[in-house]
Amino acid sequence: MPVRLLAPIIFSLAAAVPAAWEEKEPPAQEYEYGADASQKLDLWRGRGKSAPVILYIHGGGWSQGDKEHDALQKAAHYGQMGYAFASMNYRLVPQATVEQQVADVASAIAWLRAQSRPLGINKGRIILMGHSAGAHLAALVATDPVYLKNAGLSMKAIAGVVLLDGAAYHVPSQLGVGNADMQRLRSIAFGGDVARQMRLSPVSHAARPNAGPFLLLHVNNPSTIAQSRGLAALLRKAGTKVTIDMIPNSDHMRLNRHLGDEGDRATELVDQFLATAVP
Rank of each mutant, 00 (worst) to 15 (best):
residue 160 G to Q: 06
residue 159 A to S: 09
residue 210 N to K: 12
residue 218 H to L: 14
residue 171 V to A: 01
residue 225 I to P: 01
residue 224 T to R: 04
residue 212 G to R: 00
residue 183 Q to N: 09
residue 182 M to Y: 12
residue 152 G to Q: 14
residue 180 A to L: 14
residue 231 L to Y: 10
residue 229 R to E: 09
residue 191 G to V: 07
residue 182 M to N: 07
residue 219 V to P: 01
residue 146 V to K: 11
residue 215 L to M: 12
residue 162 V to G: 00
residue 184 R to D: 07
residue 165 D to Q: 06
residue 150 N to I: 15
residue 220 N to D: 11
residue 170 H to G: 07
residue 208 R to V: 15
residue 165 D to Y: 03
residue 203 V to H: 01
residue 157 A to P: 06
residue 170 H to I: 08
residue 166 G to N: 01
residue 227 Q to F: 07
residue 182 M to C: 13
residue 169 Y to G: 00
residue 215 L to W: 03
residue 219 V to W: 02
residue 226 A to H: 06
residue 193 D to F: 05
residue 150 N to C: 15
residue 206 A to M: 08
residue 201 S to W: 00
residue 163 L to C: 05
residue 211 A to R: 04
residue 180 A to R: 14
residue 171 V to K: 02
residue 199 R to A: 12
residue 195 A to L: 14
residue 177 V to P: 09
residue 222 P to E: 10
residue 191 G to E: 04
residue 223 S to Y: 11
residue 175 L to P: 01
residue 149 K to C: 13
residue 228 S to G: 05
residue 228 S to M: 09
residue 220 N to T: 13
residue 180 A to V: 14
residue 200 L to I: 14
residue 184 R to M: 14
residue 158 I to R: 01
residue 157 A to K: 02
residue 190 F to H: 00
residue 196 R to E: 09
residue 157 A to L: 06
residue 183 Q to A: 11
residue 226 A to R: 12
residue 229 R to A: 06
residue 151 A to C: 11
residue 160 G to P: 05
residue 195 A to H: 13
residue 156 K to H: 12
residue 212 G to A: 04
residue 200 L to D: 02
residue 158 I to Y: 00
residue 168 A to D: 03
residue 173 S to W: 05
residue 157 A to D: 00
residue 170 H to W: 13
residue 211 A to S: 07
residue 167 A to Y: 15
residue 208 R to W: 15
residue 213 P to H: 02
residue 184 R to E: 08
residue 230 G to V: 06
residue 187 S to R: 13
residue 190 F to K: 00
residue 158 I to W: 01
residue 165 D to S: 06
residue 199 R to I: 11
residue 223 S to K: 05
residue 168 A to Y: 03
residue 222 P to C: 12
residue 225 I to C: 12
residue 170 H to C: 09
residue 160 G to K: 07
residue 194 V to H: 12
residue 221 N to M: 13
